[in-house]
Write a protein that binds this DNA or RNA. Structure first.
Lengths: 153, 153
DNA sequence: ATTATTATGCTACTCAGTTGCAATTGCCAC
DNA sequence: GTGGCAATTGCAACTGAGTAGCATAATAAT
């Protein structure tokens, strides 16, 4: 593995650009770069992960990374996951419905206690019913499984 | 409602003391007081909730509150819940098995988006099976339902 | 190109939670 | 009870994620 290896997100810049264009909002370098990072990763990324990935070719201020990530959530493009280490992690939404439609539904994630990586389980976890006490209205359901991932057994 | 009303946790001091005695660890004022707070609340309490409850009759340093809460988790007496506001909340474990036995199992909570209160759903949510990708070993499963509680509809 | 609008970058801040250490307290042996 | 040691508390200073304000720069519409 060479130090000069190109970061993986570079091949997602095109896709990122068109996704952002589709929102009708402003197309900016940081938005394209941050979104490309999320597209390039199958796992959830923290603000720091993103900033570190971009530092060489698309350095972005850390505050801007926060703001862009939040913007992506508001656009319905990604969602955020609260980790045990009090760090938000972000991940592309699986099925891109029409933007502006806030996807309020199920999320299921696996977080490895050893390597801290967060995986998306939306494909493997079946839907299930939730019965709440009287008067309680659900808007979103998150399932979090902790344990060891395949690489950390 | 008078200002001089006695805080609810005072009536749980006895129970707290005997629970701490049962661990075989040291019996201290802060441990008794903090545990009594958790016993007195049906909802999850943050470190700040606890400190505020104790300020009049059993004032405890905030660092000590943190440490006692962590100790209670390690003793298997309570568990912690990560909130969307990056604040830990703590709650007595429902069925007290023998201390030292770390309860690794399901937890289910409801957090109200309006009042931020966290409720325990362990009684109302049925168990369900989780199928993980190959090689993934689960150790704990948390279910988090967001929405509006009965008081905030 | 010019201009109004919006996003970025920077600095400084907030706030939950942690660390180091000295002073105190609980508990055991006597 | 009293002495002594280990564990715990309290305090102060720190860390690190996330946020707010504002001047500058970039976008996109005219």
């Amino acid at each position: 593995m060479q130090l000069s290896m190109k970061p993986a997100y570079l091949s997602h810049l095109q896709a990122a650009e068109s996704a952002i264009r589709a929102t009708g909002e402003r197309l900016t370098q940081p938005r394209v770069a941050v979104l490309a990072c999320l597209l390039a990763s199958e796992r959830a990324s923290s603000h720091l992960d993103v900033a570190a990935m971009l530092v060489d070719h698309h350095a972005v201020d850390r505050v801007t990374v926060y703001r862009v990530l939040e913007w992506l959530v508001n656009q319905g493009i990604s969602h955020r996951i609260a980790g045990d280490d009090r760090v938000w992690r972000f991940m592309i939404n699986p099925q891109q419905t029409s933007a502006k439609t806030v996807a309020h539904g199920h999320h299921a994630h696996f977080v490895c206690e050893a390597c801290r990586q967060t995986f998306c389980l939306d494909k493997t976890i079946p839907k299930f019913d939730v019965k709440l006490p009287k008067g309680f209205r659900p808007s979103e359901i998150d399932l979090l499984v902790r344990g060891r991932c395949a690489a950390c057994v």
